[in-house]
């Protein structure tokens, strides 16, 4: 029982991180029609920025996390403005750009910081015990912080004018343009937000596991599974799917074998696609 609860909690922690990554992928796809394979590199960049600021400069964790989100957001701004923007009408070019970016960013990270594994000093080091279940405090913190970010994002997209116009552009850019909405600005903004959330995921992962140049690949694969499962372009779907994948992975790791953990996520993924080919929520937000 205790082990079950622990696995469930781990699943929620991972699910909340995957959710952060998936949102950026789903926005790039929904707004630009680009499958951004480089999105994992922004996760990595976020972790490296936080590592650099905390370990090398001794900046407090929360401040470093915020700064990392800002830095990666700015990086995302430049990348969208000066590369993806020109690929919007040629998805294949977007694909090439994203693959090129992976190489550039990962190698830049190795050049700048060296190839060895790194770790971000977590904000909390101890554990807390709730009813006999022992949980790492940092994990709980990551879950709470990531969930808050997801909730903020949800409210932003649902309730604010800017969030609504983002949905409008995703649905029908032509009509949105006729309302006076600037497609360029919305897409740029969405890309930056996606990168900021990716950086947050990177900091979270880096504080729980290790920081490496290739650390973005695994959560990115999860993100692809999640947005397919949730229904392309569906934010609600992505949230639910993120937690499903997080839970399945962690239960499989706990009860079957951690070596096989990833397989189970894909099995559930394939099963759902067989029975609900448009994802759990079909299309829609």
């Amino acid at each position: 029982m205790i082990q079950l609860i622990q696995q469930l909690v781990n699943g929620l922690v991972m699910g909340s991180i995957y959710g952060l990554v998936a949102l950026g992928v789903t926005m790039s796809f929904g707004l630009m029609g680009i499958v951004n394979f480089a999105h994992g590199a922004f996760v990595m960049a976020g972790a490296f920025a936080a590592f650099y600021l905390t370990t090398l400069y001794g900046i407090p964790f929360l401040l470093a996390a915020a700064a990392s989100m800002g830095i990666v957001g700015a990086l995302g701004f430049l990348v969208e403005r000066y590369s993806f923007r020109f690929a919007r009408h040629e998805p294949i070019n977007g694909l090439m750009i994203s693959i090129g970016l992976i190489y550039v960013m990962e190698n830049a990270a190795i050049l700048l910081f060296g190839p060895e594994n790194k770790a971000i000093q977590p904000l909390f080091s101890g554990t807390i015990e709730v009813g006999g279940v022992v949980l790492a405090t940092q994990r709980i913190f990551v879950f709470v912080a990531s969930s808050l970010l997801l909730a903020f994002f949800y409210l932003y997209v649902k309730k604010t004018k800017s969030g609504k116009s983002m949905r409008a552009v995703a649905e029908n850019a032509f009509a949105a343009q006729l309302m006076g909405i600037s497609i360029d600005r919305i897409i740029g903004l969405a890309f930056v937000i996606g990168c900021v959330l990716a950086a947050a995921a990177g900091v979270a992962l880096g504080s729980l596991f290790v920081v490496t140049a290739h650390m973005g690949a695994a959560p990115l694969m999860k993100a692809f599974v999640i947005i397919t499962l949730g229904g392309f372009g569906s934010i609600r779907g992505a949230f639910v799917a993120a937690f499903i994948i997080g839970l399945v992975d962690s239960l499989a790791a706990g009860y079957v074998s951690s070596a096989w953990a990833d397989i189970f996520g894909y099995v559930v993924f394939i099963l759902i696609l067989i029975f609900k080919p448009k994802g759990i929520f079909g299309e829609g937000t």
């Binding site: 949905r167 649905e171 029908n172 032509f174 009509a175 937000t285």
Partner: peptide, 8 residues
């Protein structure tokens, strides 16, 4: 062709 935002 109307072009309303169908999911809004």
């Amino acid at each position: 062709g109307r072009q309303v935002f169908a999911h809004m």
